[in-house]
Every structure is written in C-alpha cells, then in structure tokens.
C-alpha cells in the first residue's frame, strides 16, 4: 500500500500514526509539509530512519525544493517527481492519504 502523508511530524502526529499502524513492506510518500520529515538534522530524522527497515520512504522533490531544502535530503529517502508519485500509485495495489 502507498501511504501519502502531508503534514510535518514536528507539528502533527500524522506521520507517527502512519508509521505505527501501517503494515510492513509499504511505500510512504512525503508530500507538502511532510517533506520536512526527510531533511537532515530535523528532530524526527532518527524515527524516520528507524522506520526504513519496514517500509520504503519517498519524498516529493518539488515540494522539498519549494521549501528551500532540496539539498538537505537525509540518507535512505528516495526523491521522486510527480511522475514518480504517479508511478508509486500504480505499483502499489492501493493507496491511502493520511489526512
């Protein structure tokens, strides 16, 4: 399953809920304000790293770049563009937006 998250983990528990609940082996895509989770040195970095054993984490690069952090992507997170976002929606048999 593709799990789409759009909120910063520093102000919202949404990413935490997603990572806690989702079944192993899914894809997580960080878009909009959730991209802050995937930056080097942010307070959530270690938690996101810990989750990477169970799921693959992707970040929507246009959203990261828009926020001035295109060069701060943390290790282990894959950057995708909108075509990559579409690709993730196709390759997973279902998807969920954690609103």
């Amino acid at each position: 399953m593709l799990h789409i998250v759009n909120k910063s983990p520093l102000t919202s528990g949404t990413l935490e809920s997603c990572l806690n609940t989702m079944a192993d082996g899914g894809d997580v895509l960080l878009i909009e304000d959730a991209v802050y989770a995937a930056t080097k040195g942010n307070a959530y970095e270690s938690k996101l790293s810990a989750a990477m054993g169970r799921c693959k984490v992707h970040v929507l690069m246009p959203d990261l770049e828009a926020r001035g952090l295109g060069d701060r992507l943390m290790a282990g997170v894959a950057g995708v563009d909108y075509a990559g976002f579409v690709g993730l929606a196709v390759s997973n048999k279902n998807c969920q937006s954690w609103l």
């Binding site: 759009n6 878009i31 909009e32 246009p62 959203d63 563009d81 909108y82 075509a83 976002f85 579409v86 929606a89």
Partner: peptide
C-alpha cells in the same frame, strides 16, 4: 498537488 498529480498521470 491534485492538479500536478493529474497532469503527471
């Protein structure tokens, strides 16, 4: 986001 996703699809 929805528009850009639709366009890319």
């Amino acid at each position: 986001s929805a528009y850009l996703f639709a366009k890319a699809a």
